[in-house]
Amino acid sequence: MQPKALILTGYGINCEEETAKCFEIKGADADIIHINDLIDDSKILNDYQILAFPGGFSYGDDTGSGNALANKIRNNLSDEILSFAQKDKLIIGICNGFQIVANLGLVPATDKQYGKREAALMHNTTARYICRWIDLKNHSKKCIWTREIDLIHLPVAHGEGNFYTEEKTLKKIKEKDQIVFKYIKPNGKPANQEFPFNPNGAMEDIAAVCDESGKILGMMPHPERFSTFTNEDMWELKKEKLIREDHTIPKEGDGLKIFENAVFYFK
């Protein structure tokens, strides 16, 4: 079947259009829905198989990134979202969306405690917003969203991406294969907290985690910003190499794989 994806927007979310476009390119039917419209008519959630919390600056990061919008959802849509999370459906939170799903307790949701906050995305250790391309390694076998991805190069752009959780939670998510992406150096070695490879100081270089089922993913990097070959930071060098070797220039960017995986899950 062709899955339907609901892309949430409103209150300063700002990556909804490119996120929707990536789902569409990979064959999903994507609708951008304002959170207030969803609160007014929450039944429409039933029509969707995929729910995306795009990146942005919901409520300007006031009272903590993702906190105010998560509060709004908790105050008005708590049951509906928790029920969606426990069905055979997919959820992704990207950047500010990761901050929101973490605050909603959709990831890591150890022992299926959906709704309980267990992770925080804190201020970068530089205390400054950073926009740059970074390298990631996929550690999770169970995460649906990242199947067939080993290494990937993606941009990050955030001021609060410093992943933190308590030791006991960290232990659990390791055991249950819930750590998805870790920041690495361009040579493939662990970033080991070293700036700028680990751009925010995240614990154990964690850039993305999923829930126990592997169906809910929260990630700081932006796959929707690498939809086209010409998005990458070093694409000009790659292009020149391809031309000199008489190859054609590809169209798509690696970030689309994540959206393709989601669509493929329902096919």
């Binding site: 700002n14 490119e18 926009c131 941009p155 010409t230 070093m234």
Partner: peptide, 30 residues
């Protein structure tokens, strides 16, 4: 690097270019 130049997904020629990240004087957006 503290200004988001990737949002909206159309970035082509960026403010910092090359392996050595040198400030550019022109940019392209698709």
């Amino acid at each position: 690097s503290q200004y988001d130049h990737e949002v909206q997904g159309g970035s082509v020629l960026k403010p910092l270019q090359g392996k050595g990240k040198v400030n550019a004087t022109a940019s392209i957006t698709k």
